[in-house]
């Protein structure tokens, strides 16, 4: 069972209660630039041509951020949320580089900064509670539940009202499937959702190459060992040969070795 969030842009009335709930839950200060994710803003509500869309961590099924983190500070939990452990984090910021949605932000102003992003209120989800942003949404724009069930419901909503919805569930296949699903009246590219994100999970791009490494190392090791043996032996025989010539002594063993080399 993996939990997910469904955002329905056609139901959203842009009241912003989800944003306030997030700020309160995480005790974050208000910011001037409210339309931009930052260390103090883990979710935003953007309006594109009258069409609203929430932006937050997508909680990918196979997250790039968790796969690149050298110490496992980011973790895809079995419950669904991608959680963050600040005590493990070394601050390399690879997660920020790797995220195809550019979600993780950094506490640049702190001397010992943390990565900040939505963790789908993991502490609440773990206890069977609904994430803070979804709880106060009374118009049905946000729904929390099992990902498969939410996906089925999203498809149902589109099927029942084909005129109302653009026929695409953003997050069903993007980045190999995400834990936040979007449906709405217009195409996702009109909502500023990145369309270049591949449907293949991003860790695969690395793994395809990295999995070849043990083979390369094994072949490389035997090649180097082989070369060393060949060359070392050749030099040794050459020395013995030289010695044999200079001392005018030709042992059977040396002669045998030389024959072997020549053949």
């Amino acid at each position: 069972m993996s939990y997910a969030l469904l955002y329905d842009g056609t139901e959203c009335v842009q009241c912003g209660v989800c944003l306030t709930a997030c700020k309160m839950m995480w005790d974050l200060p208000e910011e001037v630039d409210v339309d931009r994710l930052s260390e103090n803003t883990l979710t935003t509500l953007e309006v594109h041509d009258g069409h609203p869309v929430r932006k937050m961590c997508m909680h990918c099924d196979e997250p790039a951020c968790a796969s690149v983190c050298p110490v496992g500070a980011l973790e895809k939990t079995k419950e669904g949320p991608v959680n963050y452990h600040p005590d493990k984090c070394i601050g390399c910021r690879y997660c920020m580089m790797a995220c195809p949605f550019s979600i993780p932000k950094y506490e640049w102003s702190s001397a010992l900064p943390r990565v900040r992003k939505c963790v789908m209120c993991f502490d609440r989800v773990e206890k069977g509670k609904v994430p803070a942003c979804t709880l106060p949404c009374k118009v049905g724009a946000m729904k929390f539940g099992d990902r498969d069930e939410l996906l089925a419901e999203a498809k149902q909503r589109i099927r029942n009202n084909p005129d109302r919805y653009y026929d695409h569930i953003y997050g069903e296949k993007e980045a190999g499937g995400t834990g936040v699903l979007y449906i709405g009246a217009v195409a996702p590219e009109k909502l500023g959702l990145p369309m270049t994100v591949p449907t293949e999970p991003l860790p695969q791009f690395t793994w395809r190459v990295l999995e070849k490494l043990p083979g390369v190392v094994a072949v490389g090791a035997s090649f180097c060992m082989g070369m060393w043996w060949l060359i070392n032996r050749r030099d040794k025989i050459r020395e013995e040969d030289l010695e044999a010539i200079t001392t005018g002594r030709s042992t059977a063993e040396t002669g045998h070795e030389l024959e072997e080399v020549q053949s």
């Binding site: 796969s67 983190c69 493990k88």
Partner: peptide, 9 residues
């Protein structure tokens, strides 16, 4: 703290 899937690791 190991994450063998990470290139950085």
């Amino acid at each position: 703290m190991w994450n063998p899937h990470s290139v950085m690791f």
